[in-house]
Simulated assay, not measured.
Amino acid sequence: MTNTTSEPHNDSIFKEAIVVFSLAVLAAVLIKLPSIFGYDLDQNENLYFRNMSFFALPLVTAYFAWKRELKTKTILFLTIPFLMALTFANIYPFEQHADTEVLLALHLPVTLWLLVGIAFSGRQWRQSNERMNFIRFYGESFIYYVLIALGGGVLSGFMALIFGTIDIDIEPFFESWLLPCGATGAIIIAVWLAEIRSNLAANFAPVLAKLFSPLFAIMLITFLGVMAFTGKELITDREVLIAFDLLLIVVLALLLYSISARNSEDTPGVFDVIQVVLVVSALIADAVALLGISERIAEFGFTPNRVAALGLNLILLVNLIWSVVLYIRFLRGKSSFSVLEKWQTGYLTVYAAWGAIVVIVFPLLFGFE
């Protein structure tokens, strides 16, 4: 007997695949569009860098707007910030190698990421569980993107090997076409794979969280212990501070991913204790970084990078302090896990707001330097 119930589902998947691959091709075209007007990547790295958010994120937002059947009013609400961001990214007369230009390019995706989340959640964005679903989805999309990148790397290696046997150098093709177009289009594909295979991808979340949370906790504790034992001075080197902030961002992402992978109805367990240790370690590390940044400001004065780092670490400090409080209250049975979820998902708007401040205000404040 023929199963006719699966046919509509297969038809919808096929239709969606056409839309997604069309968007992926469009993303690949957009990344090469500036070169058509004479702005090659090699000679206009800054132009590409500050506009990197607009090659894929608007298309991801468009995909969710189509998939969730968002109303025209909501689509307009999402479109206007993208157009404003595009304007600010290109209207400022940045000096060559300006710090504010780099900060704009790095912070712009943070703010636009929130718009993608609104499109993903549709009318339910104000619900904390939907925001947490988006965090989980974002992590799963990243996993798929890494897998696609690994597969693409293997494919590229074999292509180079095969064409090398007939004395054809395809490295220029890799650098000019395959790498930029493939990396941009793969974002759309990764998002789609996470969307249609959410049940399978969800299995990754608890495994990765339980694997990396203890490892990062051990690393932070070891670092802080060695620093205290050796009596090393506070971190004041610029490159080290940047690396340290990146580490704290990774730890925060791991915390969010761990929370999203946990069943809020489960009782406290060993993994929750590990999470508290991780957050406390990150809190102490953030305090060390803040002291290091303060020393640099006191010695060398205010610059765009130092103010951006100071603001980010202060935001992280508030997030981590209250996260520790809520997690300990949960372990003691005085609060539910959902309270911690609401705090973390609600705090996403703070990061987006800070990103917007850096993008819009910093170039004006520091004179495009």
Rank of each mutant, 00 (worst) to 15 (best):
V60T: 11
I235W: 07
I31N: 08
L316D: 07
I360N: 09
V277G: 10
L283R: 01
I218R: 00
F120I: 04
E140F: 01
L103A: 07
L283M: 13
G301H: 06
L108I: 10
L150D: 07
P172A: 03
G157E: 08
F244S: 13
I166E: 00
L114P: 00
W66I: 11
I218P: 05
T61R: 10
F244K: 10
L114R: 13
L33D: 11
G333N: 09
I91H: 09
I188N: 08
F64M: 09
L47F: 12
I143Y: 12
S198E: 08
R329T: 03
W177L: 08
V324K: 10
Y144H: 11
Y327N: 13
L256R: 07
E171I: 02
R50H: 10
S258G: 14
V280Q: 06
P81A: 14
L86H: 09
S22F: 10
P206S: 02
L215M: 14
S128P: 03
L234Y: 10
V339G: 00
L30G: 05
C181V: 02
L310M: 15
L348A: 06
P304Y: 01
I18M: 15
A160V: 03
I235K: 06
F337R: 11
V361T: 11
A190I: 01
R126F: 07
V325E: 12
Y144A: 12
D167K: 01
L254Y: 08
A287V: 12
A289V: 07
F82R: 09
L155Y: 04
L320P: 07
L108F: 07
I274L: 13
W66V: 09
V350E: 02
W322C: 06
